[in-house]
Simulated assay, not measured.
Amino acid sequence: MFLFCSRPVGSAEMDSVLTSKPRFHLDLWLCFTLQTWILDVGHSVATLVLSADWVPLNRPGTAEYLHILSNISTSLFLLRMLERSPRKLPPIAVHLGIISIVTGTSLHLVADSVTQRLLLIGYQLHLSVRENPVMKSVRPSSLVDTFELLLHFDDTLGHLLWYVPLFLVLFLFFSGSFCRRKQEEKMPPAGWMLLAPNAAYYWFLITEGQTFILFIFTLFAMTATVMHQRRRGLVLDSNGLFMLYSFSAALFLVAVWVACLWRDGVLRKKHPGLIYVPQPRAVFTLHLRNHTSSSPSSSI
């Protein structure tokens, strides 16, 4: 869906969309919030906090099963969102997009599973692969290249195949969430209730997934779309307001997160370059896990 432009909506079809009364898709956003927090965020939390003794290390654990369900539910949700969007895409583009997401999430699943096992033997997420004490003792040393390849599949290829289609679908849905000025609606109470968890999930997506560039370009495109549609006498409906407020709140959360960790030299070494957005799991292994493991109760 991403090598092709969206199919323009016909004038008659667009007029029917604009003249119909806008409604807030509570079922869509509620399902999105539940599946992202229970499955997507849930598998990352399970990786760090659940005991590894529950299942053999050579078998999938709770985190892996949550990850598998997340991969399936994400694709289903995006298909449902495309069905609700006034702007339609060619079927071949939809198929390519879903295949891309499934491939990216599958690569991420495998890499996360290996990383979870490495954490049990002392791997530190706040360090690069070669700087980890565990990797310095690996023999032959050429095996470190294999782990770097695994990390590349996860953090680069997997994330691109997963997050690029995700943000494009979100933007496509947003671009169709407009109505005429006389139909302008405020966001309903249900939208305000879902705003905080939705924004917090976008914060997780940006920080843990390292998708700040994709996120900020999507936000800029959303803002430009709003300015363009205002010249045509159109304003955001309740769904568009919900998305714009969620993205704006997520940007604020990321700014606070970066400001709190701005002077952390270890994390800055982990995330070099102009864009510095520390990963929550790296912060956990650097500050929380080490502190917990050194407490008296951890040795009982």
Rank of each mutant, 00 (worst) to 15 (best):
L3W: 15
C5N: 11
V9P: 12
M14Q: 13
M14E: 11
D15G: 05
S16Y: 07
T19F: 04
K21P: 01
P22Y: 01
R23I: 02
D27V: 06
W29H: 08
C31R: 10
T33Q: 15
L39I: 10
V41E: 08
A46D: 05
L50F: 12
A52Y: 03
P56F: 01
R59D: 04
R59A: 09
P60A: 06
G61T: 00
T62M: 07
T62E: 01
E64W: 10
S73T: 11
S73L: 07
F77V: 00
L78I: 06
R80C: 00
L82H: 02
R84T: 02
R87L: 11
K88C: 03
P91E: 06
H95L: 11
H95T: 04
H95W: 08
H95Q: 03
L96D: 14
L96T: 13
L96W: 14
G97V: 13
I99L: 15
S100G: 15
S100Q: 12
T103F: 13
D112C: 09
S113D: 09
Q116R: 06
L120P: 00
L120H: 02
I121T: 14
I121W: 11
L125A: 09
V129Q: 14
V134S: 14
V134Y: 13
S141Q: 13
S141N: 09
S142P: 02
T146A: 12
L149T: 10
L149D: 15
H152I: 01
H159T: 12
W162F: 14
L166Y: 14
L170M: 15
F173Q: 04
F174L: 05
F174Q: 01
C179Y: 01
R180W: 00
R181T: 01
E184L: 00
M187Q: 07
P188V: 04
A190H: 06
G191E: 01
L195N: 07
L195R: 07
L205V: 12
I206S: 04
E208V: 10
Q210H: 11
T211F: 05
I216N: 03
T218W: 08
M222W: 05
T223A: 14
A224D: 05
M227S: 03
M227H: 05
V235F: 06
L236W: 03
N239F: 12
G240F: 00
L241S: 01
L244I: 03
L244G: 02
A250W: 10
V254N: 07
A255P: 06
V256A: 10
V256K: 04
W257P: 12
V258N: 08
V258W: 07
A259S: 08
W262Y: 05
R263C: 03
K270P: 00
H271G: 01
V277E: 09
V283K: 02
F284C: 00
H287P: 02
N290S: 14
S298H: 15
S299F: 02
